[in-house]
Amino acid sequence: MSTIFGIPTPALYGQILIGLINGSFYAMLSLGLAVIFGLLRVINFAHGAQYMLGAFAAYLLLNWLGINYWLALVLAPLVVGVIAVVIERTMLSRLYGIDPLYGLLLTFGLALILEGAFRYWFGAAGQPYAAPSQLSGGVNLGFMYLPIYRGWVVIASLVICIGTWLLIEKTRLGAYLRAATENATLVQAFGVNVPLLLTLTYGLGAALAALAGVLAAPIYQVSPLMGSNLIIIVFAVVVVGGMGSILGAIVTGYVLGVLEGLTKVFYPEASSIVIFVVMAIVLLVRPAGLFGREE
């Protein structure tokens, strides 16, 4: 068996793959956070809960209504997006213009409600969600064995990230969004319905989180705690990348995921804290984040 630095290569590739998968979720979630923060100036603490909600929506759609994975991939983000729109209209929108910390506290409260309610109904243990038959099994790539579903998640997340980036950088809607991020009052004066834009952005961000949740359901178990465990790491990712740039959020997500995977191979004890250590170093060297701008 071939080795690199005394580590058998299949183990190394295996951990890199796991790192890429984790990185996919870091990227998708920090992307959503960055989009929401860019326009609303709100750190959406409920992002983890919305991710969990997406996974549960897929699970419940399958078990209650017999709706399969592919439809859930569309329906779950839609449902969560609509819930998010209601939240934005009824609650978040009242907090614009005051200290942004209140937005953080509100969404934190919402996250607790969602997590607590699901824990009450389903218990803290995870529920299994089978990958669709089309994506089960695996292929031998010669140097490693690749479960098809995991390959699919990496590709799907790349498509989602690039798609969102294109939506924001290359379309008219994206141009409005970027303009409103720079100067909302001016954009409103030009006749763009900025409140609607804010609502849509929050809905879109939450839908992205839910989509990530559906993708995650077959890999990690569907559990009420899956969101809060992840969101804190994503916060660290966001601090490292800086929230000024969409592309920065995506790249940082993947890189830190892979770095975490590699740490698992070379120094497993540190794998759960490596991202936080990177964050501390970045804060020392470049406080605004790798892709961020000083404000």
């Binding site: 509100l106 919402l110 409600i113 607590g116």
Partner: peptide, 19 residues
């Protein structure tokens, strides 16, 4: 009764109604 839910509700009420 799930304490977490209640804590979350108090959070939301505080932030929205009496900051």
């Amino acid at each position: 009764f799930p304490v977490l839910v209640l804590i979350g509700i108090i959070f939301v009420i505080c932030v929205l109604l009496f900051r």
